Simulated assay, not measured.
Amino acid sequence: MRVRIIMLLAALAPAPALAQQPEARQPKLEAGIGGGGGWLPDYPAAGQNHVQGIAVPFLIYRGEILRSDDRGVRSRFYDGEALGLDLSFSGAFPSRSEDNDARRGMPDLDWQGGVGPSLRLTLWRDDTAPQRLNLELPVRAVFSSDLTSVHFRGFTASPELALERLGVGRPGARLRVGLGPVFATGRLMDYFYEVEPRYVRPGRPAYDAEGGYLGTRLQFSYRLPLTERVALVAGGRLESFHGATNDSSPLFRRNWNTSVALGFSWSLYRSEATVASTSSPFD
């Protein structure tokens, strides 16, 4: 999929406590505003990029099960040093077909959101750095919406090898680099690559997409807390679509896509009630 809004707006979550000590405490409830944007491809293997952006309020609740941090909104069903199971979310910006040469005259691509379980296996960690290497296995159901109706678009599976390191550049900063393939069901592939007979044009023949391999992505994010209330985030993604299942679609225009993004968060309210931070620097 296109660059996830969760990756772009990781700054929506306030920075973790700069002192990662067992006795450190964080507000149980926070509220503020966050935003971000970037130069993003219109869809996977699109031939054009456009500038997209968003600013939204956020509400953070640090509970035992539901919480939001610099890794995004998540529900922690199980969280251990070597194994974690979360409910993960993702999203993507809409795209106007009239602004894309390949899709002109076709329906727009709407806002997209995904939700599903994500299994995390920690293959290696060093708490002195601190850093860790994870194998993350998210499976998500994907939906689209024009803000008047919602449509189910299929499923994605995106196993990823991810390296996380804290304190890069300054205390409290987080660097994450991930690499992995993306697979999607036929229904989602149709959303991106199908050309129905009524949309056939010279140079755009009819095409029926199939489920399978979508592409491989290398992505990074760097989160920099400026104060206890303000943080910045930078992110980027390089995607390869060589050998993709639907590379013969007339809507498939490039074997490479590049994305860059910037974001911020500003915590306007922090509750007096606090919760204890754990001894793990990654929590």
Rank of each mutant, 00 (worst) to 15 (best):
Q52M: 12
G53C: 03
A55E: 05
A55Q: 03
V56H: 00
V56W: 00
P57A: 07
P57W: 05
F58A: 07
L59Y: 11
L59A: 05
L59V: 15
I60L: 02
R62Y: 03
R62G: 02
R62A: 01
G63H: 07
G63L: 04
G63K: 05
E64R: 05
E64I: 00
L66M: 08
R67K: 13
R67C: 00
D70A: 03
D70C: 00
R71M: 04
G72S: 06
V73S: 06
V73Q: 02
R74N: 10
S75N: 10
R76L: 05
F77C: 02
Y78I: 05
Y78A: 13
D79Q: 13
D79A: 12
E81R: 12
A82H: 13
L83F: 15
L83P: 00
G84A: 15
L85D: 11
L85W: 12
D86L: 07
D86S: 10
L87A: 09
L87R: 03
L87D: 04
S88F: 11
S88D: 12
F89T: 11
S90K: 00
S90E: 14
A92S: 15
S95F: 00
S95W: 02
S95T: 14
S95Y: 02
S95H: 06
R96N: 14
E98Y: 12
D99Q: 15
N100S: 14
N100R: 14
D101A: 15
A102V: 12
A102S: 14
R103I: 06
R103C: 12
R104K: 15
G105S: 11
M106Q: 09
P107G: 09
P107F: 07
P107Q: 05
L109M: 13
L109G: 09
D110A: 12
D110P: 04
D110V: 02
W111L: 14
W111A: 11
W111S: 04
Q112C: 02
Q112A: 14
Q112H: 09
G113Y: 09
G113T: 08
G113Q: 01
V115T: 13
V115W: 01
V115Q: 07
V115E: 03
G116F: 09
G116I: 11
P117C: 08
P117H: 11
P117W: 07
L119Q: 03
R120M: 07
R120V: 14
R120Q: 09
L121G: 05
L121D: 00
L123V: 10
L123G: 09
